[in-house]
Amino acid sequence: MLGRAAPGVCQVVAVANQQQNRNMATLKAISIRLKSVKNIQKITQSMKMVSAAKYTRAERDLKAARPYGEGAVQFYERAEVAAPEDDPKQLYIAMTSDRGLCGAVHTGVSKVIRTRLQEPGAENIKVICVGDKSRGILQRLYGKHIISVCNEIGRLPPTFNDACKIAGAILTSDYEFGSGKIVYNKFRSVVSYQQSDLPLFSQKAVENAPKLATYDSLDADVIQSYMEFSLASMLFYALKEGACSEQSSRMTAMDNASKNAGEMIDKLTLTFNRTRQAVITRELIEIISGAAALD
């Protein structure tokens, strides 16, 4: 928003400097520009306040979801489940949201997937886009890889039911993958997040895991139910991490935007005053020289 406004402002300033003789017109133009930048600053400031409130809630939610997510991946790590070598089919899930103006959270996730899709073996990869932003970024060049798009994400804090719906869509889609990844933004602090991923496996991969034999009383039915639920848990966790990163990043982005707008307002006010001064001086000269001519 502000980035787009900036070049216009520069032009106005340049015009003001070059054409001193048309000060009246530029005075008006500068004051219009000044007013619009002030309005933009008001908007970014209130957006910052809103996302600050949302961020506080998202962070509290995330604290509760962290043990959940860590617990869900424990088994896959402990049992040393690995992607099956004979099944190259992979599923990537891009966890983003529908809403923009939040720095690079969405591009970060999409870039990870785009990079993977540029590597060899991409024909075996399918993508599920969670959130309209990753869909928007990936659809033009990699639309053929997308098998599902989930939207209406980011307006409200994610619930476990949201995760269940997405998990249900993955389970009922007829795409049978051997392994995959959930790519999401892991929240680290108010000013930083990092792209991270959670593993996905087929039931066959789990059944072939080297250390599964040490696990007691397992049958296919239990493993199936277990994996269904753990898919939902991991998605829930990834949604929470994503939401928290997004809000914190939006908060920072809007804060920066407000600061930039403030700088711009300062500069414009200075130019405005200078121009006004010039106009007054010119008018005085006109009056004085007019009076002098009469003498």
Binding site: F75, F229, S230, S233
Partner: peptide
């Protein structure tokens, strides 16, 4: 889900 791991850690989710 309940997971009991080989390091004696238990996860009830």
């Amino acid at each position: 889900t309940v997971t009991v791991n080989d390091d004696s850690s238990v996860q009830v989710l």
